[in-house]
C-alpha cells in the first residue's frame, strides 16, 4: 500500500501539467453545462427537468452518503458492490477463457483460421443485443455474461497480438542456449506477452463498465446500471446523473488499478 501511495505521488508529480489541463477541460464542460441548465430553467421548456444543474447533481451524489438512495431505497454501496461483483466475475471468466484462446490463436495458424471468423462475427455485436437471449439462457448470470463479452475480446486480441509480436531473434537466442519448445513458450513467449495482456485487461475493464447498464437492464434491481434505469423511471434525474458519474468514477478506479499494475509490471520487467 505504501508503495502504491509513493507511486501515485510520483505520478502526480510527473504529470502535474497534464492534470491541470485535464481539470481545465472538465471545468469548461461543467461551466457550459451549468449555463445551459440555467438558461433552460428560465424557459418554459419541459427539457429543463431533464437537465439539472451540475450543483444539483453533486447534491444528489452527496445525499447518498447520508441516506439510502431515494429511488431504490437501499444504500448506494449495495449498488456499487452488486456491479463490482458482476464486473469481477465477468472479468475472471473472460480472463480464464481469453488468455488460453489468445495464446492458441497467436501461436498456431490453424487455431487462428478456426477462431478468427467467430471473433469477427461476434465482436461487433453490441452487448445490448444479447439481453433478451442471455436473460433466458443464463437466468441470474445474464448480466455477468454480458460483461464477460465486453471484457473478453480486448483480452483475447491483445494476448494474440503479444504472442505474435515475440521478437524472432529472442526465440533464436533461446534455441542456441538450449531451449526446447516448452521452454521457449514458458520463458520467452509468455513473459513477452504479459504487457500486452495488461493492455487487454485495461481496455477490457473499461468496456466492461460500458456494458454494465445493459447488463442490469432487466431482471436486476441492484447495481449502478439499475440505479440509472430506476432513477430515470421515477424521474429522479439528478440521481440518474449522479449514478452516471458514479459509473465513471468506478471505471476510472478499476482501470486505474489495472494501469498501475501494468506500469509497475512493465517497469519491473524492464520493458518500458
Amino acid at each position: 500500500m505504501v508503495d502504491i501511495a509513493k507511486e501515485l505521488r510520483r505520478y502526480l508529480q510527473d504529470n502535474g501539467r497534464n492534470i491541470l489541463l485535464g481539470l481545465l477541460s472538465v471545468s469548461v464542460f461543467l461551466i457550459g453545462w451549468h449555463l445551459y441548465s440555467y438558461y433552460l430553467s428560465s424557459t418554459d421548456s419541459a427539457i429543463k427537468w431533464y437537465v439539472p444543474a451540475p450543483g444539483v447533481v453533486a447534491e444528489a451524489f452527496m445525499d447518498w452518503f447520508d441516506a439510502p438512495d431515494p429511488g431504490t431505497d437501499v444504500w448506494v454501496s449495495v449498488h456499487v458492490i452488486a456491479s463490482l461483483k458482476k464486473i469481477f466475475l465477468g472479468f475472471v471468466l473472460a480472463l480464464s477463457v481469453a488468455v488460453p484462446a489468445g495464446i492458441l490463436m497467436g501461436s498456431s495458424r490453424m487455431s487462428n483460421a478456426l477462431g478468427r471468423p467467430l471473433v469477427e462475427i461476434f465482436r461487433p455485436i453490441p452487448p445490448l443485443a444479447w439481453i433478451p437471449i442471455f436473460l433466458v439462457v443464463f437466468v441470474g448470470w445474464g448480466g455477468i455474461a454480458i460483461v464477460f463479452l465486453g471484457i473478453f475480446f480486448p483480452i483475447l486480441l491483445n494476448v494474440q497480438l503479444g504472442v505474435r509480436s515475440v521478437d524472432p531473434v529472442l526465440v533464436d537466442a533461446a534455441r542456441t542456449l538450449g531451449a526446447n519448445r516448452r521452454q521457449i513458450f514458458l520463458k520467452v513467449v509468455l513473459p513477452f506477452s504479459v504487457p500486452y495482456l495488461m493492455t487487454g485487461i485495461k481496455v477490457g475493464l473499461g468496456i466492461g463498465w460500458m456494458c454494465i447498464v445493459a447488463a442490469e437492464m432487466l431482471g436486476s434491481s441492484t447495481g449502478v446500471g439499475s440505479l440509472i434505469r430506476i432513477s430515470a423511471d421515477l424521474s429522479l434525474f439528478p440521481t440518474m446523473y449522479a449514478a452516471m458519474v458514479l459509473i465513471g468514477i468506478l471505471s476510472v478506479l478499476t482501470t486505474g488499478v489495472a494501469s498501475l499494475i501494468e506500469r509497475r509490471l512493465s517497469k519491473w520487467m524492464g520493458m518500458r
Partner: peptide, 8 residues
Amino acid sequence: EFALFPWR
C-alpha cells in the same frame, strides 16, 4: 541485435 531478454 544483442537479442537480450528485456525482462531479465
